[in-house]
Design a protein around this nucleic acid. Structure first.
Length: 275
DNA sequence: CTTGTACCCTGACCGC
DNA sequence: TGCGGTCAGGGTACAA
């Protein structure tokens, strides 16, 4: 569920507490959250006694860089969350603990995942580099230009909404912010990527960056599953203009917001403002 | 290559 | 209160 702003918020929450900590013990309560190539047994063995040198993020992945060069990649998918403390801070909020990482300062990093679609993946540095190379550019980097978006849009017949969600073309944009960025740019989500004008591409590029930046400043969007570390809520749900607002009036023109399905996911848009 | 669909899993919600 | 259907910030395997 978390997209770039949510994962980055979690990273910022965890970084000061986890950097330099050593993992002293690992408990796995649901085997299916240990992702390939490891099984729970080798996962525990390889993680034991490793020190976390850095907490990073790429696309929607939170990354723990370890002192032997390996990388613990976490995929939160739809319902993954973290809590950190000597005890579980809010047992009512965290009812599906899938794994515990015990740390050398006496605290525990709890991984909670109700649907268990996400998980933890331990990779050699080289393996992570190969994965990383398949991801598109980070849209909040200063080096990400309208020309980068134009290049991937120009060669696709798929709807622009689907393009924005494709992690190989641009990293970190998910279902909420794809709809929100398209609304801000005034672009119909059903339009074929290659049909967008240069002017529309420019607006969309600006909107993607703007909406991600604003959401990050608000610690992300919380309405169902997403929470930052220890259950902290984001605030961007109050700034959403179309997502989840089917039938409600557009904040710009008062026409009802519509919901359609694209690639199996809900898309929300204003038929009047996004003509 | 690209594009769409099924699926993984649990829980909340809605209409009957 | 129960029951079935639908939906949920994701990603991947597979088919066409």
């Amino acid at each position: 569920m978390p997209e770039l702003p949510e994962v980055e918020t979690i990273r910022r929450d965890l970084e000061p507490d986890l950097t330099g900590r050593t993992i002293t013990g690992i408990e796995v309560h649901h085997d299916d959250i240990v992702l390939a190539p490891h099984d729970p047994r080798s996962f525990r063995r390889r993680l034991e006694a490793r020190k976390i040198t850095r907490v990073g993020r790429r696309a929607k992945y939170l990354l723990f860089y370890l002192d032997d060069g390996s990388v613990l990649q976490t995929q939160l998918r739809m319902s993954g969350r973290f809590a950190l403390g000597t005890e579980l801070p809010d047992p009512g909020e965290f009812r599906h603990i899938a794994a515990r990482l015990h740390l050398d300062d006496g605290r525990t990093l709890f991984y909670d995942d109700m649907r268990r679609l996400g998980g933890l993946r331990l990779l050699e540095g080289r393996e992570w580099e190969a994965e990383e190379a398949r991801l598109g550019p980070e849209p909040l980097e200063a080096s990400y230009r309208a020309a980068d978006l134009a290049r991937v849009l120009a060669v696709t017949r798929a709807p622009v909404k689907n393009l924005l969600m494709d992690q190989r073309r641009v990293a970190g944009v998910g279902n909420i912010y794809a709809s929100e960025a398209l609304f801000r740019a005034g672009v119909d989500p059903r339009r074929a990527g290659r049909e967008l004008t240069a002017r529309e591409v420019k607006r969309l590029h600006r909107s993607v960056r703007e909406v991600l930046r604003e959401a990050l400043d608000q610690a992300g969007t919380s309405f169902q599953n997403y929470r930052a570390v220890n259950g902290r809520s984001g605030e961007f749900q109050f700034s959403l203009r179309v997502y989840g607002r089917a039938g409600e009036p557009c904040r710009t023109c008062r026409q009802p917001i519509e919901r359609i399905v694209q690639a199996g996911r809900s898309t929300f848009y204003c038929p009047s403002c996004q003509a």
